[in-house]
Amino acid sequence: MTKHRPIRFRAWADDKMRAVRAVSFTEKGELFRILDAEGVERWPTALMQYTGFKDRKRREVYEGDIVAVNGLARTVVEWQEYRWHPQIPKKTIYEVLGNVWENPELLKASKKNV
């Protein structure tokens, strides 16, 4: 039997990261609204899916997270071509530093150091 990853989301809504209890879409498949962990309806700017991975500190990795790979390169976790990017080999050490909504300065700092 194959073990499947849990399907979880978080959302950027009202200038704050929110845990998501339920998601609603329009008939065209566009994001409409969420029900956050407190049971409040919100209209999010972005919806981010859990990748099924955890970093070296056992924190869940979500789409839009900024991760450090082997303590050096910083990159954004994204869904591309039917898989999560970056693809992180099992023995690679990576850590969630923040995300593109709450910590955009992490990417700017990374570009200056390259």
Rank of each mutant, 00 (worst) to 15 (best):
A37S: 09
G64P: 11
W84S: 07
L47G: 01
I88S: 04
V100A: 04
E38L: 11
I7F: 09
R42M: 11
I34N: 02
P104I: 04
E38T: 12
G64R: 11
R59D: 14
G71C: 10
V96D: 01
F32Q: 10
W12T: 11
V114D: 00
K111F: 02
R21Y: 09
A46Q: 09
E102M: 14
E41S: 07
E95F: 09
L47A: 03
E30F: 12
R18Y: 05
G64N: 08
K57R: 15
T51C: 06
A73K: 14
N103R: 15
P86E: 07
M17P: 07
W12K: 12
K57F: 15
R21D: 13
A73E: 14
T75A: 00
N103D: 11
K28N: 01
A109H: 02
D36F: 04
A13R: 06
T92P: 02
K3A: 12
M48N: 03
L31P: 02
I88F: 10
Y62F: 15
D55C: 04
E95K: 13
E60M: 09
A68P: 07
A46C: 05
S24Y: 06
M17D: 06
P104C: 03
Q87E: 10
D15W: 13
D15C: 12
Q49S: 06
M1K: 15
L31M: 10
N113Q: 05
R74G: 01
T75P: 00
S24V: 04
A109N: 07
N70R: 13
F25T: 03
E63G: 07
V40P: 00
E60H: 14
I66Q: 01
